[in-house]
């Protein structure tokens, strides 16, 4: 049983033995290859020179203090930031070897291949069934929708709880169930990557554990990138960890990537003092 997620700890969270500890020192097969990425909101440079490789079928955790740009970075990966007015992106961001921001790349198609789960559960104001079935349907996927719904809900460990009330509104579910429904909705369109933006921050500890178990199971098929504020969570589930922080620059504050590497190494022997301070709770 992992420790409750809310515990304030000044000890160093130790990654569990198993897959997490065995990640190779360097990413061999990168889904995302990012180099010198910069991002601006208007005149404010939110990300500064971020370089990171994200490995296939691994769980990569993005950690760091508030305002360090980790969510902004995550939203660059499926072009969600396109929706915001007055933003600019520069640098290399390759997805499967292709530049993600090359003109001609369809953001809508990219977002189907790179799914996203949000901080707050945000199911559609429709039935449980529709929540999972809508996206495959509009995408014209040639599958039996009923089967796909069952398969996706099963993979999201929700099927047994909802199989008798598929026609009910998604809002009738608890927060934890809603979040698993959002995960089911995401995997129903067969993405290659799942981005998770603090998926457990609105959930209680038990629901959090279920989602974490789910992530470990999904790892065999998907690449997962997760933003988390919870050190224990990063230590428990991720193979690799990237630590972001905020730096003051003459033209304003920017998020920078301090270091990244196998979770075991980041948590036990970080190479940067700032990482060590943050992980052991001496930060801010």
């Amino acid at each position: 049983m992992p420790e409750p997620s809310t515990q304030v700890s000044y000890s160093r969270p130790v990654p569990e033995a198993g897959g997490a500890a065995q990640a190779a020192p360097e990413v061999v097969d990168a889904v995302f290859d990012i180099a010198d990425l910069n991002f601006w909101y208007g005149a404010n440079r939110a990300l500064r020179d971020v370089s990171l490789r994200i490995g296939r079928q691994e769980i990569t955790a993005l950690i760091g203090p508030s305002g360090c740009g980790k969510t902004t970075f995550l939203r660059c990966l499926n072009r969600m930031n396109d929706l915001l007015p007055d933003t600019r992106i520069e640098g290399r961001l390759d997805f499967d070897g292709e530049p993600l921001y090359r003109p001609g790349v369809q953001a809508i198609e990219i977002r189907r291949r790179i799914g996203m789960v949000f901080q707050k559960p945000n199911p559609f104001p429709k039935s449980i069934y529709d929540n999972v079935a809508i996206a495959p349907k509009v995408n014209g996927m040639k599958v039996n929708l009923d089967d796909l719904v069952e398969e996706s809900l099963s993979r999201a460990a929700l099927w047994n709880e909802v199989k008798d009330k598929l026609k009910q509104s998604a809002f009738s579910l608890s927060g934890g169930q809603q979040q698993r429904l959002c995960i089911a909705r995401t995997i129903a369109v067969k993405p290659e990557v799942i981005l998770m933006d603090e998926p457990c921050s609105a959930l209680d500890p038990l629901a959090t554990i279920r989602i974490e178990e789910l992530m470990t199971e999904l790892k065999s098929d998907y690449t997962i990138v997760i933003v988390t504020h919870n050190m224990q969570q990063a230590a428990r589930v991720s193979d690799r960890t990237a630590f972001f922080t905020v730096e003051d620059h003459p033209e304003g504050r920017s998020g920078v990537l301090v270091e990244s590497g196998p979770t075991h190494k980041i948590f036990t022997a970080p190479s940067d003092q700032r990482t060590d301070d943050y992980i052991t709770g001496r930060f801010g």
Binding site: M80, R111, F118, N122, F124, I134, T186, V189, L195
Partner: peptide
């Protein structure tokens, strides 16, 4: 809520589909 619309956008739905389903 913007977060609800983002849920649809992140699934690769078009703006029109987002309006229809969210």
């Amino acid at each position: 809520p913007a977060v609800s619309k983002e849920g649809a956008v992140a699934l690769g739905l078009t703006p029109t589909e987002t309006i229809r389903f969210v």
